[in-house]
């Protein structure tokens, strides 16, 4: 009962309802895209993009522009660039991503200190703030989440093929380049949307954790995708509730919930593996 009261009390705050709506949608999209990104070894792209987003946000604030109108195009551009770089370049992919992300972090910090000065804003950008969501953000997130979900469902088979075996897909005439672009584009938008709430340093956890967590137990691509989405949204709710009750930072609490889920799944898979092995041994001892 106390739990229900807490929840009711929580949702009586307008800003919290907005944050929960946006956050849940972003968690869902990030988890779905994360399955493909993690399996394609592109996990670091998410991290790189969030740093680029930080730089773009800082510049937008300095120019007094609406944060999303500046950061969405910049981050989308960076996503295409990072994708190209990790596919073919003289500088190796991971090094190139580290270069771009630290560069934009540095530029962002300089711009902020020159304009508003190093204050709580910087802290909010880096670690997120639950107060950041406005009404227009909510509308935009709902629209974009709908687009991401629709594209993911409609293109599910193509995303699977491009993720599992790009060479085969390419040989049978699938435009793998275009599909990679699409995944990068959707990732960029998801990151920008979630960044101000989760924080530039923490947003990539929404992409990486759910996929890795569900891969501990799930054995098929479809089940990994569905499980990631469920785990991600559940962890987000858990994180926000804890952050409300204990007054901890929202972004960090959501990540903590994801860590807990990961450890839980990992322990479950280890336990399953052990019982499986004992069963095998028993079988071989007395057939």
């Amino acid at each position: 009962m106390a739990m229900l009261d807490t929840l009711l009390e929580m949702f009586s705050y307008q800003f919290l309802v907005r944050a929960v709506v946006v956050g849940a949608l972003v968690s869902l999209c990030a988890a779905l895209l994360g399955v493909s990104l993690v399996l394609k070894r592109y996990s670091m792209i998410g991290d790189g993009l969030s740093h680029v987003g930080f730089g773009a946000l800082a510049v937008a604030t300095a120019m007094n522009a609406a944060p999303l109108t500046v950061s969405i195009p910049v981050v989308v551009l960076a996503a295409f660039l990072l994708l190209r770089v990790s596919e073919n370049s003289k500088i190796k992919g991971d090094a190139a991503i580290a270069l771009i992300s630290t560069s934009s972090l540095a530029i962002g910090v300089i711009v902020i200190s020159l304009t508003t000065g190093m204050n709580t804003d910087v802290c909010n950008y880096l670690f997120g703030s639950i107060l950041a969501m406005s009404k227009s953000d909510v509308r935009l997130s709902i629209a974009l989440a709908a687009v991401v979900l629709a594209l993911f469902v409609l293109c599910y088979n193509k995303i699977y093929a491009v993720t599992f075996d790009e060479n085969f897909a390419k040989a049978t005439g699938v435009k793998t380049g275009a599909w990679n672009m699409l995944i990068a584009f959707l990732t960029a938008i998801t990151i920008v949307l979630g960044m101000r709430m989760m924080g530039a340093l923490l947003i990539s956890s929404l992409i990486i954790f759910p996929a890795l967590t569900s891969m501990r137990l799930c054995k098929t691509f479809k089940s990994v995708a569905v499980c990631s989405a469920a785990v991600s949204v559940a962890c987000f709710f858990a994180g926000v509730t804890v952050s409300y009750v204990k007054a901890t930072p929202t972004g960090a609490s959501v990540v903590a919930a994801n860590i807990a889920a990961f450890l839980l799944f990992w322990a479950a898979s280890a336990a399953k593996g052990r019982t499986g092995r004992t069963a095998n041994i028993r079988q071989s001892v007395n057939p």
């Binding site: 399996l39 699977y160 993720t163």
Partner: peptide, 8 residues
Amino acid sequence: AQKDFPSS
């Protein structure tokens, strides 16, 4: 990448 890919 295929060595640890979850897929039936």
